[in-house]
């Protein structure tokens, strides 16, 4: 009897530490933030002392052109980063999916950029983009070309390039893994039927890789909204607001402008956006599983 009770309790005992920690340091703070977003709250007050102002923070943000500017920078950044990384990453995977010596060494070197701290990545690129001592401008100069004001007029583009450098390998590795797990028989059949390399890629490889590619793209998209340190170190959101993505604006609103309520409301907007994306991803994987199960059932019925 005692053993039966102990067995029934086992899963709860295993879960308990994780649930407690996530409740204290993740769920409770999130609830606290939602509560705080309805208050006029400065860092020197406790939340109880802060005045309740209803939806004022949300309305203020809705009418704040700087918030919209920041949101549009975030969306532009996320869009270009994900699109370009997908194109380059998948392209490289298709190109390098060959049986060559030293592929594992190559993959090791490729994942190096994404293991390095974002702060350090920002630091490296800030040096390379430097108007006078930077690598790029020095190179352009020695070639006799006009120099480019990387972090000035073209700040957003430069930030996007740095992110592409850091995260394209992620897409590349996942796309390569997907490619190498494709059924060999389908490719073999296509080759025997005389399909050209392009036809194989376009009609067989890409459609078969699609599920993995979509999940990868969504993961990358969610991560693109988390980018902060690279941009903070490279441009500090400037010049003007041209690279101030939402995450950066939240942190500045909280620490520089000292308006925790507004920052909390802004965090909530960002959270809603991400929630929608996550739900899309979740729905997609569920759909995929259902479809796979249906196909499997159909195959079993036939045989």
């Amino acid at each position: 009897m005692r053993i039966a009770v102990a067995n029934r309790l086992t899963p709860y005992l295993f879960m308990a530490p994780a649930v407690v920690i996530m409740a204290i340091a993740l769920m409770y703070p999130l609830g606290y933030m939602i509560w705080g977003s309805f208050r006029d709250w400065s860092p020197s007050q406790t939340i109880g002392e802060a005045e309740f102002v209803g939806l004022k923070n949300y309305v203020t943000l809705w009418g704040d052109p700087n918030f919209w500017e920041s949101l549009s920078v975030t969306l532009t950044f996320a869009f270009f980063v994900v699109t370009l990384e997908m194109l380059i990453g998948v392209g490289l995977a298709l190109l390098l999916d060959r049986n060559i010596r030293g592929m594992s060494v190559l993959r090791t070197l490729f994942i190096l950029p994404m293991m390095i701290a974002p702060v350090v990545v920002g630091l490296m690129w800030r040096y390379m983009y430097h108007p006078t001592v930077g690598t790029f401008n020095r190179m352009l100069d020695s070639l006799g070309l006009p120099t480019v004001d990387w972090l000035g007029n073209h700040a957003l583009m430069s930030v996007i390039i740095a992110d592409i450098w850091q995260w394209t390998p992620f897409i590349f590795i996942l796309a390569l893994a997907a490619l190498q797990s494709l059924p060999r028989s389908a490719l073999e059949a296509a080759r025997i039927d005389g399909a050209t390399a392009w036809q194989q890629i376009w009609h067989i490889k890409l459609p078969l890789m699609m599920p993995v590619l979509i999940v990868t793209g969504l993961l990358r998209l969610i991560d693109a909204f988390k980018v902060l340190e690279v941009i903070l170190v490279m441009t500090e959101g400037g010049p003007g607001l041209s690279t101030e993505i939402l995450a950066l604006r939240i942190s500045r609103t909280a620490t520089e402008f000292r308006e925790l309520g507004v920052a909390a409301a802004m965090s909530n907007y960002l959270l809603i956006l991400l929630l929608a994306l996550t739900l899309a991803m979740f729905a997609f994987t569920r759909l995929q599983e259902a479809r796979a199960a249906r196909i499997r059932a159909a195959v079993e019925e036939e045989s």
């Binding site: 993740l26 703070p29 999130l30 988390k226 902060l228 995450a247 920052a263 965090s267 960002l270 991400l274």
Partner: peptide, 13 residues
Amino acid sequence: MVPPAVLLVPVFG
């Protein structure tokens, strides 16, 4: 999917 920036305000408080 919760970004660190979103946790900043509540965790600080």
